[in-house]
Nucleic acid binder design. Structure first.
Lengths: 226, 226
DNA sequence: CCGCTCGGGACATCCATGTGACATCCATGC
DNA sequence: GCATGGATGTCACATGGATGTCCCGAGCGG
């Protein structure tokens, strides 16, 4: 899922936003100052930046300019957060290349919708691509299609997410807890056979190619390309 | 590069849009009233008109009608800008011959994408044809006509738009949210059957050929040519 | 007033999913 | 080797959520 950097000096607000973005399945990172935000962005380029224009150190506009001037960070979408009535800021922000803005006070719901919309657009622009592969298996995210040796395999939405998660983390063992959390969105310990059952169904549908999903006894599952 | 006429009464917004269009390499011209816009268009026919439906003098719809009735200005593409929630206006606008619309508040990136897309289509039409096809279905954007095995099918403006969107993104799954956003111009989570209903109507009108609209359970719809 | 289009609520329908019971397998200690 | 307990594989089934379908009311144009 997408990675979002929050640059916001009001701790309460930052916490609230972070909590909700995580609940919606995003990875988040937070900085309380403009300088800190830029450092974070450089260290770990995000897909989207939530930028407050009123920061204690650097002016928000300046941060935006810096972000957009770095070829590495440039591709991140930017959503501006500005205080009520700062029309001038808003205009300036959009001129500088922000993708959208929300005005304080905003509802979490609205923020989520805008973030999702911006990311969706960014996705659409990236064109086709987005094909994961391992062994005889290839998975096309945008088409929502899986092939084994060129032959199409029909998966359910859940099976698809599971396979994608495993492919994205090829060769690394995923515990049942991690899978439950990342594929199912559930945080809990397990006493049921839910994960196993779906792994089984996946192996079944993949046929012989299903062998690349390995069981790591006592730990979890991993997908290991030949 | 293309020439764009902005008819918009909010000065700030007009300025912002103008700035960005110029930055993107377009020639621009601005009018703050409907009458002024028509005068400008007559004096110097644009390739594309960005038309706000809420104008101080003439109704936006009227401006559109005038534009389309003049043989000289007729060839200009029109992108409607309407305030949030003015559903009726959008539909009406499309029926009157607008090529696309954006809903306020919109992001600059979105506006640019739509403007470029519309111009691209307009360009393509100058050539032999602007026909999208898949299986037995062919859709002619310039004639606003759909055929199944050569037989003409009558679609409403909305159905046409829905089908075109699916055709343009053949093979790629579109979630209900994406469709609502791109076909309807609404940003929201869904609890209604709106999208499904229109998909159903589309399938119905397309007859057996309607089968190429696939349901991807848990995700959305996609059109997959044989 | 009639007919068309569209949105969306109220169902009907379908099938993906979660679950617990049971079978099986494997690492471990002897 | 072998017994043993815990971990994993497998299965059938109910249940809820997602989708298909129908229908009505609103808005608009003729």
């Amino acid at each position: 899922m997408a990675r979002i950097l929050i640059i916001e000096d009001e701790q309460d607000l930052a916490g609230l936003v972070e909590y909700n973005l995580r609940a919606a399945g995003f990875e988040t990172d937070t900085a309380n100052t403009g300088a800190g935000g830029l450092a974070r962005a450089r260290a770990h380029p995000p897909d989207l930046v939530l930028l407050d224009l009123m920061l204690p150190d650097v002016a928000g506009g300046e941060v935006l300019r810096m972000l957009k001037s770095d070829p590495e960070m440039k591709k991140a979408a930017v959503v501006i957060v500005s205080a009520k009535g700062q029309e001038a800021d808003r205009i300036q922000g959009l001129e500088l290349g922000a993708d959208d803005y929300v005005v304080k006070p905003f509802s979490v719901r609205e923020l989520l919708l805008r973030v999702k919309a911006v990311l969706r657009r960014a996705d659409a622009e990236e064109g086709p691509a987005a094909v994961l592969a391992a062994g005889d298996i290839s998975l096309d995210t945008s088409r929502h299609q899986v092939r084994v040796k060129g032959e199409e395999i029909i998966l359910t939405a859940l099976e698809f997410r599971l396979l994608r998660t495993l492919l994205e983390r090829s060769d690394r063992v995923q515990t049942r807890e991690v899978l439950l959390s990342d594929v199912w969105g559930i945080q809990a310990e397990i006493h049921t056979r839910t994960v196993d059952t779906h792994i089984k169904r996946l192996r079944e549908k993949l046929g012989p190619a299903g062998d690349i999903i390995e069981t790591v006894r006592g730990v979890g599952y991993k997908l290991s390309p030949p």
